[in-house]
């Protein structure tokens, strides 16, 4: 209740974060911050258990059909996975550093680091979507894909003035019903692709949600909403982003490093 008077006696040139007052049902802003963090950790627990279903499906099916998973995984290039791991780890660092900057009231750095984190998210999605999903699903490669020269013998189409190149027979590594890849060694390989696309797809969805939160934080930060005494939103966005990273830390070896 004692925090309610923080508004009084402060002029309008005072940054937004200094004028923040806790909700009327809280005894102090610290209590509110602690509660928000606890609430967010509970939410993270639900996210972990959401992915638990995917990990469980992965474990049961891999135990049943190890060869199908081996065959399927051999189509993934670990170098892309590794690069994406690096991108996410760096973005996790920039996110943590950004919170630190807001805690120290270094607004410009905080915003810059938020922007870098957002850019890393875009990088992750580009690698995932353009270099991994698109060729595997459709056989369309972007012309500067480093893997493309290897398959040029089977080129059978171009689009957008040569920006995209179609390789006959490469695509069709789709989940379940839509699987149409002709060179598979294992009858259960469509299942592997189902698990792969469900897991990475839902993870990618979380990347997008995380990026939206970061964008929101960025725009609020431009108005000076976050500072040493109030940065709950950045903190929780950070927690969410780290969780996205955490999931990927487990998905990467499970999907890319099977042998």
């Amino acid at each position: 209740m004692s925090t309610l008077d923080t508004r009084s006696g402060i002029g309008s040139d005072v940054p937004l974060w200094k004028r923040y007052a806790a909700g009327h049902h809280w005894r102090s802003a610290d209590e509110e911050f602690d509660a928000c963090t606890l609430g967010f950790w509970l939410f993270l627990a639900t996210e972990v258990l959401l992915f638990a279903g995917l990990f469980c499906a992965y474990a049961m099916l891999r135990y049943k059909y190890p060869e199908a998973f081996l065959n399927g995984s051999s189509h993934l290039d670990w170098r892309w996975g590794c690069l994406n791991t690096g991108v996410l780890l760096i973005s996790s660092y920039t996110m943590a550093a950004s919170i630190r900057m807001f805690q120290l009231d270094r607004q410009a750095m905080g915003k810059l680091l938020l922007a870098i984190t957002f850019a890393c998210g875009i990088g992750f999605l580009i690698i995932k979507g353009l270099f991994e999903y698109t060729p595997k699903l459709s056989g369309w490669f972007i012309s500067f894909d480093p893997a493309l020269p290897h398959y040029l013998d089977f080129k059978n189409g171009e689009a957008l003035g040569g920006l995209f190149v179609h390789i006959d027979g490469y695509g069709g590594k789709a989940p379940g019903q839509f699987f149409s890849y002709a060179f598979s060694d294992n009858p259960f390989e469509p299942l592997w692709w189902s698990v792969y696309y469900c897991a990475t797809g839902i993870h990618a969805l979380h990347v997008v949600i995380g990026m939206s939160l970061i964008a929101w934080c960025f725009f609020r930060a431009r108005k000076g909403a976050y500072g040493p005494t109030h940065y709950t939103m950045v903190e929780n966005t950070g927690l969410y982003w780290h969780l996205v990273d955490l999931i990927w830390i487990f998905l990467f070896p499970l999907l890319y490093l099977i042998h």
């Binding site: 499906a57 049961m60 099916l61 049943k64 059909y65 199908a68 989940p175 379940g176 019903q177 839509f178 009858p187 259960f188 469509p190 299942l191 189902s194 698990v195 696309y197 469900c198």
Partner: peptide, 18 residues
């Protein structure tokens, strides 16, 4: 929902699912 709309097979014995 994925299973029903896209027949991904994870729960479908006809595709090796369970």
């Amino acid at each position: 929902i994925f299973e029903r709309m896209f027949k991904i097979g994870i729960f479908d014995p006809a595709m090796g699912g369970d």
